[in-house]
């Protein structure tokens, strides 16, 4: 399962790689990263069919996660099945949640990420 993680904090990358060390080694998951919404869209141009799950931060300079979500739902909605999008934010408030859900997010997670919960959610996805 290919997962795209979108976050402007570069250190998120080693964190995911280590947290999912075993899963990666067992080839259960595969990670790719983008540092901005714009990067993510560029990446998706080529690989949207491969990506199963997108985990995106909301608060990023430039294109926000919510905007990215809008583009994903508009541009990459056709089958093969559209990617699952989970929004991540440090500001876990009503407004963000409402907007994310309106724009078609599948889930909403708050920072700091609970990786055990995330793994559980991934398991539910694959089952």
């Amino acid at each position: 399962m290919k997962i795209l993680v979108v976050d402007d904090e570069a250190d998120v990358q080693p964190l995911f790689l280590q947290r999912f060390r075993k899963e990666i080694r067992n080839q259960e998951v595969e990670f790719d990263f983008a540092l901005s919404g714009e990067d993510a869209l560029k990446y998706l141009e080529d690989k949207h069919s491969e990506v199963v799950l997108i985990l995106s931060d909301i608060n990023m300079p430039g294109m926000s996660g919510i905007e990215l979500l809008g583009h994903i739902r508009e541009d990459f909605g056709d089958p093969p099945p559209p990617p699952v999008v989970m929004m991540v934010t440090a500001y876990g408030d009503e407004e963000n949640y409402k907007q994310a859900m309106e724009k078609g997010a599948n889930d909403f997670l708050t920072k700091p990420l609970d990786f055990d919960l995330l793994k559980q959610k991934l398991k539910n996805l694959t089952d």
């Binding site: 904090e9 250190d11 964190l15 280590q18 440090a90 920072k111 700091p112």
Partner: peptide, 18 residues
Amino acid sequence: IQNPLNFVNNFSEVSAEL
């Protein structure tokens, strides 16, 4: 402050697992 603290927590947790 929250962002770096999250990293501190996450990296120390994951290091214990490692």
